[in-house]
């Protein structure tokens, strides 16, 4: 474990807590893409299948359990409890356009042609594009609530911090995983224009609004 990975995990945890807080406080999931949340649940489900077969640490296990539980709880809130506030008209990104190509790529490009390894690879590739329905929804509505932009900033920062973690591990531990690094860079690049808007607008107290 290194400081970048710990900060990254905390940023990821913060993002999830911000989202849950926003929905619980406002009793609404307006502006949130349910499709992105479904994709995240798929990411965690396919990545943490070794949850019971390989024990790394208490921290690792509890974080995995929390990520899986919170992702399904978020879906429950969006599609059941606060269903009336779910904006399905603007959440129109076709998930199959992401899942199918990513599924094919995971079969073709992976470290080992084994079920667990292919599912892990699928999860890594899927996570890198899972935010697209959410960014698409923000661009369609043309704006996002401030708390939603904080959620997106924390979420985007987590994988950016993981990139620093991979640099650190490369130089100090000699570990390197090309698949995780490439997917992590793609994932972070997708947030770039949002990061720009967040830093130039939200941090100046303005509302996040995309140029129409």
């Amino acid at each position: 474990m290194n400081v970048f990975r710990l900060l990254g995990d905390m940023s990821h945890l913060l993002a999830i807590l911000i989202l849950l807080l926003k929905m619980w406080k406002t009793r609404s999931c307006a502006g949130i893409s349910g499709k992105t949340q479904i994709l995240f649940a798929l990411v965690f489900t396919t990545r943490y299948l070794d949850l019971f077969s390989s024990f790394i640490s208490i921290y690792n296990t509890t974080m995995k359990l929390f990520f899986i539980a919170s992702s399904y709880f978020t879906i429950f809130l969006m599609y059941s409890k606060f269903k009336a506030t779910y904006d399905s008209n603007h959440d129109s990104f076709r998930m199959e356009f992401l899942v199918v190509p990513v599924g094919g790529l995971a079969f073709l490009v992976n470290h080992e042609f084994l079920p667990l390894e292919i599912l892990w690879t699928f999860s890594i590739y899927l996570e890198s594009v899972a935010i697209l329905p959410q960014l698409f929804m923000v661009s369609k509505t043309g704006e996002a609530e401030t708390i939603t932009s904080h959620y997106l900033f924390a979420l985007g920062s987590y994988r950016l911090l993981y990139i620093f973690n991979w640099v650190y591990r490369y130089y100090f531990d000699g570990f390197f995983d090309l698949i995780a690094v490439v997917a992590g860079c793609v994932q972070t690049i997708l947030y770039c224009d949002f990061f720009y808007l967040y830093i130039t607008k939200v941090l100046k107290g303005k509302k996040l609004s995309l140029p129409a």
């Binding site: 990975r5 995990d9 990821h12 990545r47 070794d50 390989s54 790394i56 690792n60 974080m63 995995k64 990520f67 470290h111 080992e112 390894e117 892990w120 993981y162 973690n165 570990f175 995983d177 995780a180």
Partner: peptide
């Protein structure tokens, strides 16, 4: 590579 066998990152 030992790391690939044990995925220790979240």
């Amino acid at each position: 590579k030992p790391w690939l066998d044990k995925k220790d990152e979240l």
